[in-house]
């Protein structure tokens, strides 16, 4: 069952390796040149790798809550037909509760930056 996926992965790796090998032959030089980061020609004052201020961290927490919910959603999708209305009611009550949380987060400004 998974042999197809493994084969595709191998194909992809082959494609990447082929391109890199081809590049070694066709490029004006095989080795990379080391350069300064693009800053309009100015010297960088520090390394860019740093603690980055993500201003959407509130949104990412709400996202996590919902993302975990997807764990239930996929198996649920398979049994809706089997279980009928009760499954629908249960799931959408749950989703409704989550959406209320989203509305609350929205009103708190979690999805607005700046």
């Amino acid at each position: 069952m998974y042999s197809g996926i493994v084969a595709m992965a191998l194909m992809a790796v082959f494609a990447v390796v082929f391109l890199y090998a081809l590049h070694r032959l066709t490029a004006v030089a095989a080795s990379p040149v080391e350069v300064l980061p693009a800053q309009s020609g100015w010297m960088p004052q520090e390394h860019a790798l740093s603690r980055f201020h993500v201003r959407w961290y509130m949104a990412s927490i709400v996202f996590l809550a919902f993302d975990v919910e997807m764990l239930f959603m996929y198996p649920w999708a398979v049994i809706v037909i089997e279980r009928g209305l009760s499954a629908v009611v249960e799931m959408f009550l749950f989703l409704g509760a989550l959406l209320v949380a989203v509305v609350w987060a929205w009103r708190e400004g979690a999805f607005r930056w700046a």
């Binding site: 494609a15 990379p32 040149v33 790798l49």
Partner: peptide
């Protein structure tokens, strides 16, 4: 791009960079 040389920025994390760049092609195959 095949003719152009590769470059690395000073103190860059080249491994992560290349994983990211090549990963896009691999991901689409998967």
């Amino acid at each position: 791009l095949l003719r152009q040389r590769r470059r690395t920025v000073v103190a860059a994390d080249t491994l992560l960079l290349r994983v990211g760049a090549a990963g896009m092609l691999v991901g689409s195959f998967l």
